[in-house]
Design a binder for these strands. Sequence first.
DNA 1: TATACGCGCAATTAATCGGTTGCGCAAGTT
DNA 2: AACTTGCGCAACCGATTAATTGCGCGTATA
Lengths: 106, 106
Amino acid sequence: MRRDVFQAIADPTRRAIIGLIALQAMTPNAIAEHFDTSRQAVSKHLQILVECQLVKQEQQGREIYYQLEVAKMKEIDKWLEQFRKIWEDRFSELDTVLSNLKTNKP
Amino acid sequence: MRRDVFQAIADPTRRAIIGLIALQAMTPNAIAEHFDTSRQAVSKHLQILVECQLVKQEQQGREIYYQLEVAKMKEIDKWLEQFRKIWEDRFSELDTVLSNLKTNKP
DNA sequence: TATACGCGCAATTAATCGGTTGCGCAAGTT
DNA sequence: AACTTGCGCAACCGATTAATTGCGCGTATA
């Protein structure tokens, strides 16, 4: 089962979970209380998040705390990087590039 | 059919398409040439991208040029914003929080 | 030691996904 | 006018998906 970060954040519940545990590690039950789904459903989401290393777990007695692997979020940011150039740097510059591309045909 | 930006970029082909047309608007056929999938498959992806407004189309004769709606990419960036704080500003503080949690064990 | 809890691990089902195929319409070409 | 080309639309199919249910294994508590 090939999972990547982008697929992981595609699900709204998963994004909500990420937002929840971003500041503080939580157990599946604690997380599940914030949604109106079952614990198992949440656990499955967590499993997927762990699978793609967006979240890591830490056992503590019979409880398992899930916490965000913040570094992995950079991967998304890294992908966005190339587009940030386009939307921040210069819209007019982009136009120049496009014009050049068009006039560059022999 | 509820689509959002995150679901749109979940698919690797869709991300590749986005990367392709980022700099230059392209027609479905032109895009399809870059992959080993059919034009229809690409068209379906484009349809999804248009649906969530990540891409817009512009008719030109019988050809339709698809072009990236760069502004919409910001939506992803906006979501990342909250985590950027964590991973950039406060690694040390995060560690403190985690340590505190750990010392809670008897 | 017996009992209650927290949790992961299947197995199952309904829904959705990505892709293919075939069609028809409209815009260019001859 | 007849033909070709670019494209969207719809139907279909196998593969995933999200969520439910039932189970068993450890860890606490009495």
